[in-house]
Design a protein around this nucleic acid. Structure first.
Lengths: 342, 342
DNA sequence: GTGAAAGCGCTAACAC
DNA sequence: GTGTTAGCGCTTTCAC
């Protein structure tokens, strides 16, 4: 229960006629307390509405049961789904979360975030901000200097670093192969911003699938958006201009695919007859687009949950055996959902 | 900079040949330190990569510069936009965030969350989980017992409680009046789940506007969804069944509106000729639906930002003058965006 | 201007 | 089983 005037372990000890240590033992469910004493202390605790002070515990234990989470672009669907998975799994496993959102992750604004987490004694860090630009560099620079376990999400494999990510490359290949199977001959791509690793992976998957099918890839066949529907529209119009024979598009995400569905009929292209579309992400709404959108579903909730599970095992490993866990590269396979747009 | 072996205030003091107090003074930018000493201490700090331990500071100061944030349904767009506003403004004002996501907020799982926040010495709490069911009751029960400032989001006005919310009622009225002006005679509503306060407000706004226009409202004229597109489709089909003469729909949110846009043509209703649609929320994608969706835009980012601003002012008020701020009911007006669907 | 002492609330290590 | 003694790292009196 919540109370204004906070009782401390000291008050409980005094009222129960035991030492503070004994109270602490009861608090931590240690065995070496007689059942009788334990009961009495517990009663007094209830009576005084005693609540242990977590800050004092953290300081004393040198362990906070808190993880730091770095996110970015929370106003978009993807990052928040990941965060949702993180919050749920962390709750399950008894950890709290300290949250920071960063705008863009260049080394300059990363250091303060890590320092802040460290000052707050977090037991581990989940880096859930996407890899953009020079991410790689700071990892190499900074990581060796920090002694807190970190898990990275959505990032290229890297030595000595644990990473959890969707397999964007394979996901893209599956999408494009599907279009090929549907008999499409001129399959274009509208990529996300290419300073994002995910965007690059999906583009590479598209290229890979085409090349494998003996189709030559050149720069007429793709344009770049910034994930938003608005940018998708612009990118689509640009694409049509320079690659008019296009009859299939693999879009970097569902939002950009959406604007293709809207714009194509306006310029006389029927979907899927004249133009087949496949998106990426598998957001819930994509089923209700017109026509319903084929897409590559990635389970971002699961991504977050795995990250937490992994982090917990790393922190406990570190605590118990005082040895680091060997880093892992964990990959989740996305899943093609075929609907009317292809 | 991040370093493994953490230097303490004690190490700095020793190396600088001063007392720990003096180091603490430099740390807190107190004036009563000679410029010379200050410089020397600062140099040593840099040299040792000294980073103050925030946990120790919190314990000692009895102030953490941390806010607790309770959210719900993070995997949906609305809550994460609000959270985004919160993170950004908190960062700006120098506060960190402790995040908890709750599934549903009945008294049973609320108390532990509040207790947890309190144990962690948060300076204030933002309750960003929507009002569902018996929310009201626990507020009355629990609030008087807690001495930490709390701001609630999206909730009915309540004595002695500070609340920040979109004016859902007025927003709904504006939407429905727009449909009336467009000459629609049979304006229906697909509501969100009515245990949500927001859903009730929007439904009441719809009723109010119709009643004011002299149109009788009865139960044939509305059905209920659960915010998802899928539920919107079901609710729409049900509505068409019992209210076939419908020629305008105000949907409880954009996702549910989306599935109407998809389903209506399938049953021979053209939009907007036979059926005008207005949604609620104004999500970015709604502009790219087919046809583009008229909607009531609410600025959820701003909602979060205001909540933080308000909370900071309350905590500082409490600290300095030791008197509570008078509670406010802050309302943000949403904005009608007219597009092709109406 | 600077330092010594006490304390924030709790836990770990060692006694008995 | 239980208590004593030291801290965890920092800030806040109150001296000087």
């Amino acid at each position: 229960m919540i109370k204004k005037n906070k009782a401390t372990i000291y008050d409980v000890a005094e009222k129960a006629g035991v030492s503070r240590q004994t109270v602490s033992r009861v608090l931590n469910n240690r065995l070496e307390v007689s059942e009788e004493t334990r009961q009495r202390v517990k009663e007094i605790m209830a009576e005084l509405n005693f609540q242990p002070n977590a800050v004092a515990q953290s300081l004393s234990r040198q362990k906070s049961f808190l993880f730091g989470v770095v996110t970015s672009g929370l106003k978009y669907l993807g990052p928040s789904r990941v965060l949702s998975g993180i919050t749920n799994k962390a709750e399950e496993l008894g950890y709290g979360l300290l949250l920071k959102e960063v705008q863009n992750s260049n080394s300059a604004n990363i250091i303060p975030v890590l320092d802040w987490f460290k000052a707050h004694q977090v037991d581990g860090i989940i880096w859930a901000a996407p890899e953009v630009e020079d991410n790689r560099q700071w990892i190499k620079d900074v990581l060796p200097m920090i002694d807190i376990p970190i898990i990275f999400l959505t990032m290229e494999e890297e030595e000595n670093v644990t990473i959890v990510t969707t397999d964007n490359f394979t996901g893209a290949r599956v999408a494009v192969n599907h279009l090929i199977q549907k008999g499409r001959k001129n399959i274009a791509h509208i990529s996300g911003p290419l300073d994002w690793w995910e965007a690059r992976q999906r583009k590479m998957g598209w290229e890979s699938a085409l090349t494998e099918a003996g189709i030559h890839v050149d720069d007429r066949m793709w344009t770049q958006g910034n994930w938003s529907s608005k940018s998708g529209k612009t990118a689509f119009l640009e694409l049509i201009e320079k690659y008019p024979e296009v009859d299939g598009i693999f879009a970097g995400n569902d939002q950009m695919a959406l604007s293709i569905l809207q714009t194509a009929p306006e310029i006389g292209k029927r979907i899927p007859q004249d133009l087949s579309i496949v998106g990426f992400d598998g957001i819930a709404e994509s089923e209700f687009y017109i026509p319903s959108l084929s897409t590559v579903y990635q389970n971002q909730d699961e991504l977050g949950r795995i990250a937490v599970t992994e982090l917990v095992s790393q922190t406990e490993m570190k605590l118990k055996e005082n040895k680091a866990v060997e880093p892992k590269y964990i990959t989740i396979q996305p899943e093609l959902i075929i609907r009317q747009s292809s």
